[in-house]
Nucleic acid binder design. Sequence first.
DNA 1: ATGACAACTCATAGTTGA
Length: 264
Amino acid sequence: MKIATFNINGIKARLPRLAEWLSETRPAIACLQELKTADEGFPEADIAALGYKAIWHGQKGFNGVAILADARAGLSLAEVQRGLGVAGPGEDEGEQARYLEADVAGLRIACLYLPNGNPQPGPKFTYKLAWMAALRQRMAAIWAAEVPAVVLGDFNVIPHDDDVWSPKAMADDALMQPESRAAYARLLADGWTDALRTHNPRGGVWTYWDYQAGAWPRDHGFRIDHILLSPECADRLVAVGVDKAQRGREKASDHAPVWAEIAL
DNA sequence: ATGACAACTCATAGTTGA
């Protein structure tokens, strides 16, 4: 069973690329981030026409997450919860649409778009760390439920220096601050397995390339999209990869899809 | 040291992203 995550950077602008990718790779489960649309703007009919059921948690203009399940494979999809209960920084302090959890074909799937946190220090970085603390609590609850689980999405954390083309260029970025890395490392210390890292222990694999400064042609990327596996899933991990070619297409997202194949 | 690129919005300039 192939389970994938893809920060699509706008589902309206990216629908042609998303349709191509789904048709070409047919993941059983696809988690999407940065829908950048309110709930009513989600292209449900287009997704259904591609053979996918979907649930989504939208927000106008920014954020937004969705979980897709292959309807042609007959997969069930039932929402468990949306949101972690963390109020965002800013005037209204409302919660942002960054977390969606569902049961899909006997698996617990948590799709997330973790706050970027820049600039740091500042309220956005404080929000990022608070969000990571809440995520850890939620993942502990999933762990306690003893269901096979996959927690995946755009974590906005560069875990190691070998996960970025230039640690020096990114040194002041929220994505690789010691506090960000420590919070991510705590998830792994809790027992979750970083699927891509397991198969690429020396790093050097990117999932994001900036639109600016020729980052893509120069291969100036880094790894921030992650797939974390519960022990049952980690034991059954057979392959993991990045659909890097997607990043080179016309009107591409700045992220590439990441997937894991689990033998269930 | 700066800016570059893209998507979105009560748009035609400002915000956010990473």
